[in-house]
Structure formats: C-alpha cells, structure tokens
C-alpha cells in the first residue's frame, strides 16, 4: 500500500484541471515512476494525487498543422523510441529516452514526468533543450506555450501554476528540418543508472556538407537544471566542418557550463567528461548529417 491520502482520477484534460483547482494540495501522478518511488521513501507520503495516467488523449506523436512535431506528455519512453515520426525527424530523442532506466521503466515513464520533475539528469531534457522544444501547458486560463528553457525555473521547480498540467511537448518545424543529432549519456552502468553527465548535440550542414550552418548543444547535470551552451554554439556557427573547429567547439564548453561536485562525480571530472562528450557528439552529428571531419 502506498501512503496516499486520496486519489482523484481525471477523465479528460478539463477534468484534470478542475480536480487540480478543487484540490490545490494534490500532486499530479502520470506514470508514477518518480512519485511512487518518493512515496515509498516517505517523501511525498500522505499526499492527495490527481491521476492523469488514464488520459489517452495525451498519448502519442503527431504533426501540428504548421509541421511541428507534437509529443503528448503521457507518451511513454518506449513509444517515443518506437514512433515512426520520431525515427524519421528527431531520431536522437528516441535514442536518448531509450537510455532511461531499464525496459520496464521505459514502458511506464512519460516524457511529461521526465520534464515536470525539473531534474537536471533527465535523459530527455538535454535533447529537448537542444532542439528548441516548446512546452504546452493547459490550465484554468486555457492553453499557453513556452520555450523549454523558460519552463525550468530552478532544480526541481518548473513553471506550472496552480491548476496547470503539461499537455504536450512540441518541436517546431524550423527546429528539426535539416538537423541531425546525437546524445551521449555518461553513467557508471549501461542500464538502470542516472547520468553523471548527458550531452546532446545537433548540426545543420550546408548543401555541400562543408559548413556548419547551425550547431546546437545542451547538457544535463552541467548545472542545476538542463542548459544550452550558447557560447559554445556561437564559437563555431557558420564555420567549416573541420577537426580544428570540432576541437574549438569542445574547448569552448568550459566557459558555458557550471557542474558541481556530487557523490556521483567531482566537478573536475564532469568538466572533463563534458568536453569529451561535446567533441564525440558533434563528430557523430556531422557524420549523420553526411559531412566528413578531416584529419
């Protein structure tokens, strides 16, 4: 038995909003792989829960009218990885969430839960940051959409006002069209382990594959919340594809990130890993985009 005070099951998104307004103390439960574990640990014990797990309308991947990819917040990791739209247009997201926990966690864990928990090590987060994802939030006032960078406020806190829930994550067409990317998770074990550092890079090459028209990079566990490394991007944007520029890119990372000491790894080790991951992930992204790095 879980120490749940009361459970309210939402039957639609509107109903979920109404339940949240009616029970301001209640916490949302999606797949429950964070919240039920916390409850067992005694952390969220004695809480009221609003379950949104039954809302199939919030599952699945589709296109919006403007070409944006829409990922329902309740879509599980395994369904994201297996989805044909994801595989064709943002394959790296499917690969990133395929590194979460183990197979059973990937069947229950949702992308909404992975971002609403505000955790810096969340395996989906760096890729969503690196692809300019937009978060759709539904609440008593209606629907609003904000860039994912604004959604994260501080460690463990995201921009959800009373009565609001996250209903989808969108990847705008201009953010995915022509881009190829790669995610690297550094952890102590291959399965069932949280990232020591996660790095997601993507690149858009010119038609002749010689120039990096755009490069984007984001990290998990390089700061209290997932983050873009904008200085690093600016250092090579518009430059030619070359080994030297890949090195410049990786070297610039240290100016952008703010990792800290934790029981998983020291700050110095995380800095070292961040540079190595940036270089490898950019090389792989260039290769996927059809480019070739000299030397």
């Amino acid at each position: 038995m879980y120490d749940i005070k009361a459970l309210y099951e939402a039957e639609s998104v509107e109903h979920a909003v109404a339940l949240l307004v009616e029970h301001p103390e209640a916490q949302i439960i999606a797949g429950g792989s964070d919240i039920l574990v916390k409850m067992r640990e005694g952390k969220c014990a004695g809480k009221e829960l609003v379950s949104i797990y039954g809302l199939d309308e919030m599952r699945g991947v589709s296109f919006e009218a403007d070409g944006a990819i829409r990922i329902g917040s309740l879509t599980s990791f395994s369904h994201i990885t297996g989805d044909p739209i994801i595989q064709e247009h943002i394959r790296v997201l499917g690969e990133a969430v395929d590194m979460v926990g183990g197979p059973q966690i990937r069947n229950i864990g949702t992308i909404g839960g992975n971002t609403c928990n505000g955790v810096t090590s969340a395996d989906s987060a760096s890729t969503l940051f690196a692809w300019d994802a937009v978060v759709e939030i539904t609440g008593p006032e209606g629907v609003r959409r904000i860039p994912i960078q604004d959604f994260y406020i501080r460690a463990g806190v995201v921009d959800l006002k009373p009565g609001e829930l996250q209903t989808a994550i969108l990847i705008p067409k201009k953010a995915y069209e022509g881009y190829q990317g790669h995610y690297m998770k550094y952890a102590m074990r291959n399965a069932m382990d949280i990232a020591t550092t996660g790095c997601s890079v993507n690149v858009k090459l010119s038609e002749d594959k010689k120039v990096m028209e755009d490069v984007r990079i984001a990290y998990g566990v390089a700061g209290p919340v997932p983050m873009r490394a904008s200085g690093t991007e600016a250092a090579v944007k518009g430059r030619t594809v070359s080994g030297e520029n890949v090195k410049t890119f990786a070297g610039a990372v240290l100016e952008d990130i703010r990792p800290r000491d934790s029981f998983r790894a020291s700050k110095e080790f995380r800095q070292h890993i961040a540079v190595v991951l940036a270089e490898r992930a950019l090389r792989e992204s260039i290769r996927l985009a059809g480019g070739e790095v000299d030397e």
Partner: peptide, 26 residues
C-alpha cells in the same frame, strides 16, 4: 518495491511493467 529489481514484473496489454510502481486502479 521501487522499480529497480524486476521481481514484480507482469505483462499489461502486451508490455512488461514493474507492478510495484503501478497503481492497482490503473
């Protein structure tokens, strides 16, 4: 009972889940 070991695994609608972190009402 926290999703780490798989001893509680069952198949639900064709997919394998940890039944320890799954609400019975679901």
């Amino acid at each position: 009972e926290v999703g780490e070991c798989g001893a509680c695994n069952v198949i639900i609608d064709g997919e394998c889940f940890n039944s320890c972190i799954y609400l019975a009402v679901w």
